[in-house]
Amino acid sequence: MNTTYRTNFLLKMLIPIILFVSYFFISHSTTTLVAAILATLLVISSGIEIHKNNKWNKTNLKHDQRTRANAHFAGYITYWLMLITLFAGAILLMNTDLPLTFPKLIGYTILGSFAVRWLIRDYLNNREKFE
């Protein structure tokens, strides 16, 4: 759905708020805190970029064919990296005495996969700006 940059920014602000509420009132997990901080930094950088280019009332055309293809490619790469990481991590946890549990392995893998997906997608979408 193509919305204005202001609406998209307000929707992006909900993710860090939900994560901080989850951290302070529900889980007290460091993984949740790290995810909340990363999401906050992402929202702040997005807001700075929108403000710098004065796009608050303009329509955000983020779903064209190129950006969708880049998002699908990043998701595909992240999917396979996550499967390999979980498989290798499960084997390591069963055969060694690492102080890591399976839920923590899953949580760190999901957090890492989101970060890798965002990095790959943003790199592919912004590659043409720098060339």
Rank of each mutant, 00 (worst) to 15 (best):
F25L: 14
Y23P: 05
T4H: 05
Y79D: 07
F20M: 03
N2I: 04
N126C: 07
L92P: 07
A69K: 13
D64Y: 03
I18E: 08
T40P: 12
A74M: 09
I106K: 11
I17G: 01
N126L: 09
R68G: 04
T67K: 10
Y108Q: 06
N60G: 06
L81Q: 05
S27T: 15
A90G: 15
D122W: 01
T31S: 10
T67M: 14
L42C: 04
K104L: 12
P99M: 09
Y5H: 01
S29M: 04
S46H: 12
N53P: 11
R117W: 05
S22H: 08
L93G: 08
G47P: 12
L41I: 15
A90Y: 15
F20L: 03
H28M: 10
N95G: 13
N60V: 03
W118T: 05
F24Y: 12
R117S: 09
T32M: 11
E131A: 12
M82K: 10
K52V: 02
G89H: 01
K129Y: 00
A35N: 04
K104P: 04
L100C: 15
A90K: 15
N125C: 06
L81A: 13
I120Q: 05
N126A: 11
T4A: 10
F73K: 07
W80N: 03
F114P: 06
A74Y: 11
L10C: 08
S45G: 04
P16V: 05
P16L: 07
V116Q: 12
L98E: 04
A90T: 15
Y108S: 03
F25E: 13
T31Y: 08
